[in-house]
Write a protein that binds this DNA or RNA. Structure first.
Length: 194
DNA sequence: TACGTGATCACG
DNA sequence: GTGATCACGTAA
């Protein structure tokens, strides 16, 4: 069952980031279905320096200021498309970066998109999973309740004791906010990014 | 450890 | 307009 709109709003972004672990992210692009279980997330809030929305609204981060339940997709280092889930109410620009998936659906399609013959590590990183699932900036602002990109709850429960908190990756520019333990992973899962 | 890659943003 | 920077991935 797709996550309800209420899942994405009126709750702490860190709570939502934790609860996204074990949920299934799926895309239907060019009529091809691909998807995987979320095993690594990072929370970002407009209140802290790690977040694209910290300094206010810009052309790139505009969708972050909209109501939760949409995709925020941007290009990183000129090469990698990055997929985030927008959360919180209109004007409260929170988002969660999806950093790694465990492949579930359309594994051959994902291998083709990655140009490899094995499923090994095809979705273990934020730039890789978007490529495997066919996600790019055309999906920026897309509503997750529609049938192009969505997140489902298939009843998989991740115990609190199986969740690891750590500092977020690659945001040294955020100063002391880079130390916030806002990265969530499923303990021992082999699909976590390196 | 180094660097490709091109959009973005803060300057003026 | 311009230049530094960047929520990565791969090669070495």
């Amino acid at each position: 069952m797709k996550l309800a709109e209420s899942f994405y709003i009126r709750r702490n972004v860190t709570t939502i980031a934790r609860q996204l672990l074990g949920k299934i992210l799926t895309t239907k692009i060019n009529n091809l279905i691909t998807g995987g279980m979320i095993v690594e997330t990072e929370a970002y809030s407009y209140k802290e320096r790690g977040c694209h929305a910290f300094k206010g609204r810009t052309q790139r981060n505009e969708v972050m200021f909209e109501q939760g339940g949409k995709a925020y997709v941007y290009l990183c280092y000129g090469v990698h498309e990055m997929f985030n889930v927008v959360t919180n109410k209109t004007g409260k620009a929170d988002a969660i970066l999806i950093r790694a998936l465990e492949p579930v659906s359309g594994i051959e399609i994902m291998q083709d998109r990655m140009g490899v013959n094995s499923s090994k590590r095809i979705t273990s990183g934020p730039g890789k999973l978007t490529r495997a699932l066919g996600i790019d900036r055309k999906l920026n602002g897309e509503e997750l309740k529609k049938n192009i990109i969505w997140i489902e709850d298939k009843g998989i429960q991740i115990k609190q004791t199986a969740i690891v908190r750590s500092a977020r990756i690659g945001i040294d520019y955020a100063g002391e906010d880079a130390l916030l333990p806002w990265r969530f992973t499923i303990k021992g899962n082999k699909w976590i990014s390196k």
